[in-house]
Write a protein that binds this DNA or RNA. Structure first.
Length: 428
RNA sequence: GCCCUGGUAGUAUAGUCUGGCCUAUUAUGCUGGCCUGUCACGCCGGAGAUCCCGGGUUCGAAUCCCGGCCAGGGCGCCA
């Protein structure tokens, strides 16, 4: 068995003989004395090798990122910056790193994102990159914990689907034995099918869009965090959304102080309830500020930014969208069918989540599908699932990479996806 | 799909406008030597670049022109 202690723990074990293991951040060889900065997931420690002929590892020719296992004693030191250093009894080189490295991990020369993505396996060792994914992990685990604690069931939607008849975004096609199949663009239909039986469900799943995006905020493969809830309307799930957002931000703030410091981010947890403005109010605000737009138009990127400025809150809801802007499954208001129970959550000027109350009445659903110029016959399975006792339900979805982006302050979504897939990138 | 900017050693860059003085700058990394307390160690030396690809203009192209590929940014698209 591989036994070792993490270097941060070792620092508190002065006088004890222990084994540590990690990567060489830097080896300074002064001929008669050598200093090795050894790093593991917990931190780093200086290993001091006296080259006085008393050991057999003094002539080790160490390079950056070599992997070492070192057994020795932790001693107090007035000279070492950490106050302690590590005096080795034995050093085992577990693996060598080829030199020179593809880019400098800790030096002053910063590699560009494209270079770093080509060597992502090593980029993860960069403190900033590492911090981004620790924050992302905290967002993910707190998302799951919040919902599990409240009785939501985690379900697994399929990623390969048969039908492209939902319309809208382009899907990736793939051969499926003698049939044709598609990569899912959304777990939408499946989460509804789960919610009308399990009542409260959630999932974290990848989705694919075959659009030829060429922007810093779009990827062709992203991860979505979804919930769907029965006996609920849009306001019910908006409340869950604002609470979970506040919870996730609080968790990041509490559990990732080092990471946030490294990323030079300060997190303010918004006060609840978040402000809700209607789509109509938003349009009026923009028109009042001199923007040319009509009711029913979508917001351009600059308009979205301007609106955030006008509202003044870092996070807010925009609700009651025009039917033309939202999917057929969004529930129309009975008194005004041109407006639907749909909402977006804007955070730091980015749309990080959107959701709707769904149409659960088969006849109304057929009507909405026709209204969008689609054929209800292509949605037979979908419509049928609401024919045997489907309660009213609502749900939303958060884009994991986009949320990570806003929380960590990254400008390019590729920074927030471990292995991004875009128009040109398929490796690594 | 459109617009702007860029592509020069492993990395990041200067030089490009105004073609020749480029046998291509600097830093970092790598490498050889010196150094017993360094900690972005320091000092001295070395190697490393068909200047993204293809074509053109010219006596001469990293530099100008055309096409392609790729990257970064601004839009569009993204039920």
């Amino acid at each position: 068995m591989f036994e070792r202690v993490y270097v941060e723990d070792a620092k508190g074990m002065v006088g004890e003989t222990v084994t540590i293991a990690g990567w060489v951040t830097r080896a300074r060889d002064l001929r008669k004395i050598m200093f090795i900065v050894l790093r593991d997931k917990s931190g780093d420690i200086q290993v001091t090798v006296k080259k006085d002929g008393s050991n057999d590892f003094a002539d080790l020719d160490l390079g950056r990122e070599d992997v070492l296992k070192v057994t020795g004693k932790v001693v107090e030191s007035k000279v070492a910056k950490a106050g302690v250093e590590f005096i080795p009894d034995s050093i085992e080189v577990m693996n060598r790193a080829q030199q020179p490295l593809p880019f400098d991990l800790f030096g002053p020369v910063k590699a560009e994102i494209d270079t770093r993505l080509n060597y992502r396996f090593m980029d993860f060792r960069r403190p900033r990159t590492n911090a981004i994914f620790r924050v992302q992990n905290t967002l993910l685990t707190s998302f799951r914990r919040f919902l599990s604690d409240r009785g939501y069931l985690e379900f697994q939607p399929p990623c390969v689907i048969a039908s492209a008849s939902e319309g809208g975004a382009d899907l990736f096609r793939l051969p499926y034995f003698e049939k044709e199949a598609f990569l899912a663009q959304s777990p939408q239909l499946y989460k509804q099918m789960c919610a009308i039986s399990f009542e409260k469900v959630f999932c974290v799943t990848p989705i694919w869009r075959a659009e030829k995006f060429n922007t810093p905020t779009h990827l062709n493969e992203v991860r979505q965090m979804d919930i769907e809830q029965a006996f609920a309307d849009d306001e019910t799930v908006m409340k869950v959304l604002e609470e979970i957002l506040a919870y996730m931000l609080t968790e990041v703030k509490e559990k990732c102080p080092e990471e946030l410091k490294l990323l030079e981010r300060e997190i303010t947890v918004p006060e609840l309830p978040l402000r809700r403005i209607t789509y109509t109010e938003a349009v009026e605000m923009l028109q009042g500020a001199g923007e040319e737009m009509a009711w029913g138009d979508d917001f351009s990127k600059p308009q979205e930014r301007k609106l955030t400025e006008l509202v003044g809150d870092e996070a807010f809801f925009m609700k009651d969208w025009p039917s033309v802007q939202k999917a057929f499954y969004a529930m129309p208001y009975p008194e005004n069918p041109d407006v639907v129970h749909a909402f977006d959550l804007l955070y730091s000027g980015v749309e990080i989540s959107s959701g709707t109350m769904r149409v659960h009445i088969p006849e109304l659903l057929k009507q909405q599908i026709r209204k969008k110029g689609l054929n209800p016959d292509n949605f037979t399975h979908y419509i049928e699932s609401f024919s045997y006792g489907a309660p009213p339900h609502a749900g939303w979805s958060i884009g994991l990479e986009r949320l990570t982006m806003t929380v960590t302050g990254m400008r390019n979504i590729r920074e927030c996806c471990m292995f991004p897939r875009d128009r040109d990138r398929l490796v690594p």
